[in-house]
């Protein structure tokens, strides 16, 4: 009997107890759901307003350049035409790319920038790693030199660099073999030497970036690698550099952009403008004016715009690919994220 009673009472009580609980829970759930969804909606809205606003400020002048590069002669003289050309033409691009001999110069430029970028990432990450993880005498002073390297105005190093590379010699070795010091002007070799010694374009900044990223990595990873018998080089290449991938990509991107657009070293070392699109673009306007007998500055500017778009295009494409391929790859790969 008692067993039957308990069996009866349990199902009777249970629904009574459960019912209010369930409805209460439902209420909280729906309420919090409404709150969270409205929160996310407001946040997304806010984010998009800010992003679009800022993006507009950035992209406004660029859109102007892009649209003007399609203007025909009549459009540029018609003051009613704004942004959207009436008689769009691709003639500006044809002329500009012919004058720049675009494909070959661009490929050479990108090759030059990419090769320098790889060297720079390697050398600067090494220096950054050395500063971040090892203790050696005079470390603080040497790191102050890195900062000094960033701060020093570039024009102060022009003269010494010029003198060094126009009479290039290493402790008299080259004079002994060659008879006289080498003149490395008008070749890209000085830039490669500088970059290989981590003293290239803005190398100080890259060393600094790497240093900060390596310092932020947990020491345990490194210790684990050592315990497992990995040597210093293996640890650095396979473990630390992998983990500092965001830093490496950031540096790679900066290095690529600045190297590709560099005119300082190119001018200083007289690197041939057949190789560097950044040097060609500065002479574009004058060349077109001479070759095609165009006198109106307004129309010449349209060619210049097309040239700027052509110059920017490969870099933007490389950036999009890099950040898609790598940065999202970093997010997926387990070690960091």
């Amino acid at each position: 009997m008692s067993a039957e009673n308990t069996v009866d009472t349990v199902p009777v009580i249970k629904p009574e107890e459960k019912q209010p609980k369930k409805s209460f829970k439902m209420n909280v759930n729906t309420k919090s759901k409404i709150v969270t969804t409205s929160k996310t909606v407001v946040m997304t809205l806010f984010r998009w307003i800010v992003l679009i606003g800022v993006a507009y400020v950035i992209i406004g002048p660029v859109l102007g350049i892009i649209s003007r590069s399609f203007f025909s002669d009549s459009d540029s003289s018609n003051s009613l035409v704004y942004m959207i050309p009436q008689n769009p033409t691709t003639e500006r691009y044809e002329v500009a790319s012919r004058t720049l001999s675009y494909m070959s110069t661009m490929l050479k430029s990108v090759g030059y920038a990419v090769s320098l970028m790889l060297i720079q990432v390697l050398m600067c990450s090494m220096a950054g790693y050395g500063f971040a993880r090892f203790d050696f005498p005079l470390k603080k002073l040497l790191f102050a030199f890195v900062v000094l390297m960033i701060v020093l105005p570039t024009h102060t190093i022009m003269l010494p660099l010029y003198m060094t590379f126009s009479n290039f010699d290493i402790f008299g070795i080259i004079t002994a073999i060659h008879g006289e010091p080498l003149n490395l002007m008008a070749t890209p070799i000085p830039v490669y030497i500088l970059t290989a010694l981590a003293c290239g374009l803005r190398s100080g900044l890259y060393i600094y970036i790497f240093n900060q990223f390596f310092r932020g990595l947990p020491k345990e990873i490194e210790e684990a690698a050592f315990v497992d018998g990995a040597g210093t080089w293996y640890t650095y290449f396979r473990i630390m550099l992998r983990n500092a991938m965001p830093a490496a990509i950031t540096v790679a991107i900066f290095s690529l952009v600045w190297q590709y657009n560099d005119t300082f070293y190119a001018r200083l070392f007289h690197v041939s403008d057949k190789m560097l699109i950044s040097m060609r673009i500065t002479g574009l306007q004058a060349t077109i004016a001479n070759v095609y007998r165009i006198n109106s500055p307004k129309i010449l500017e349209l060619y210049m715009d097309a040239g700027i778009v052509l110059l920017m295009l490969p870099i933007v494409l490389i950036y999009v690919v890099l950040q898609k391929q790598f940065i999202e790859g970093v997010e997926r790969s387990g070690i960091v994220g």
Partner: peptide, 9 residues
């Protein structure tokens, strides 16, 4: 080792 890492620089 650390010194070797920064040596090129």
């Amino acid at each position: 080792t650390g010194f070797l890492f920064i040596l090129p620089w």
